[in-house]
Amino acid sequence: MLNQKKFIVSHAPFCHDGSRISERSYHTMFAALPAIILGICQYGAPAMGVVALAISSAMLWELAFNRVAKQPVSIGDGNAAVIGLLFGMLMPATMPWWGVVIGTMLAIVVGKQIFGGIGGNPFSPVAVAIAIMMLSWKGFFDFDEMLCSYELDFAMIYPLTALKNFGTDAISAISTGDLLMGRQVGGIGSTFGLGLIIGGLYLIIRGFIRWEISVSFLVGVFVTALLFNISDSAKYAGPVFHIFTGYTLVGAFFLATDDSSSPVNCIPMFLYGLLGGVMTVLIRNLGVYADGVIFAILVINLVNPIFDKIRPKALGK
């Protein structure tokens, strides 16, 4: 028994499929790139600055929290970077630096870490941060005001505000093609519809997000907007407009699909997405806010635990 080699003793199973949280994070960031690159092309260096600051400050907040809470450093899993990146995508290009830093603090510390870090957050951290920012500094999300210094080759009006204030006449000049190709005013990474769809499909095919949530979210938006549009087409825009404007696509593919705040069972995923879509259009059409995606996502995050109780009977039950 002397000079025995030491072997590793651990528990079954003795193999793993190699998936990692960091892998999920990096692919999510990769999928968001097309939309962000177009935003940076349109708005130039300030947009680049906002995105870069958002990612780096989010990671620094996470690191700072790790240190203060004496936790192992967790920025390596890429989750903080994803949160920063998504936060940056939703910002106007002219966001002041301190707004970005406070926003990522809200996302990382308030949205995620105080609930115990990754996996513990009941709400999408990005949605929490944006919602607090929207309530605290309304002006930052007035895209017409924020981007007034830009003169790009498309109508420089924020479609959702125009719709809210002046009805469908005001948006008749905006074609679906323009919306799809990012020729609209909005957040840095939230205007390029085609890019977001490609990114979302990539994540779905690779299995990093669930199609059930994204598709039912978009179906919810489509059906509700269609019903409003049928009831009063002068006041309420059509379903396609609602899908390609504001944060709808970012919400459907990147925010609503946040792992810890979304359901895992099949029927709950459909209900969750559907409710999110319905709430989005209800807030847009009936509420005071031009865009309802963020609040809709907070609402569905809130009901997620109850939805997730709908589950198949386990074997032998």
């Binding site: 793993h16 190699g18 949280i21 996996g119 069972n265």
Partner: peptide, 24 residues
């Protein structure tokens, strides 16, 4: 030897979908 980690569950649902006994 695949390492195990002390990370918490992130609720991605992979285990729920693969479970042959349909346990959450």
């Amino acid at each position: 030897v695949s390492p195990v980690s002390d990370y918490p569950c992130i609720n991605c649902g992979e285990c729920v979908r693969i479970c042959p006994a349909k346990i959450q």
